[in-house]
Amino acid sequence: MILKDRKVIAIGDRDGIPGPAIEECAKSAGAEVVFSSTECFV
């Protein structure tokens, strides 16, 4: 587990990779996701 015992903030992009997708990847790598959001950076 690469991110075991790490806390992660997942900020995704509306036109790219959304926050929930990053969150699931981080969880599968052993991280604890403390915040997840998808934003629009225009």
Rank of each mutant, 00 (worst) to 15 (best):
M1I: 01
M1W: 00
M1P: 07
I2Q: 10
I2R: 02
I2E: 12
L3I: 00
K4C: 02
K4N: 07
D5L: 00
D5C: 06
D5A: 03
R6G: 11
R6A: 11
R6H: 08
R6D: 08
K7S: 11
K7Y: 06
K7L: 03
I9Q: 00
I9H: 02
I9T: 08
A10N: 04
A10M: 09
A10T: 04
G12I: 01
D13K: 09
D13M: 13
R14P: 01
R14M: 14
R14C: 12
D15M: 12
D15I: 08
I17P: 07
P18Y: 04
P18A: 03
P18F: 02
P20D: 00
A21V: 15
A21H: 02
A21D: 05
A21N: 09
I22F: 06
E23M: 04
E23W: 01
E24K: 14
A26K: 05
A26H: 00
K27Q: 10
S28M: 09
A29Y: 09
A29T: 07
G30E: 04
A31I: 02
A31P: 05
E32F: 07
E32L: 10
E32S: 14
E32I: 11
V33M: 06
V33H: 06
V34K: 10
V34C: 05
V34M: 10
F35Q: 15
F35Y: 15
F35C: 13
F35D: 13
S36E: 07
S36Q: 10
S36Y: 12
S36W: 03
T38G: 04
T38H: 05
T38Q: 08
E39L: 15
E39H: 14
C40E: 15
F41I: 13
F41R: 12
F41G: 04
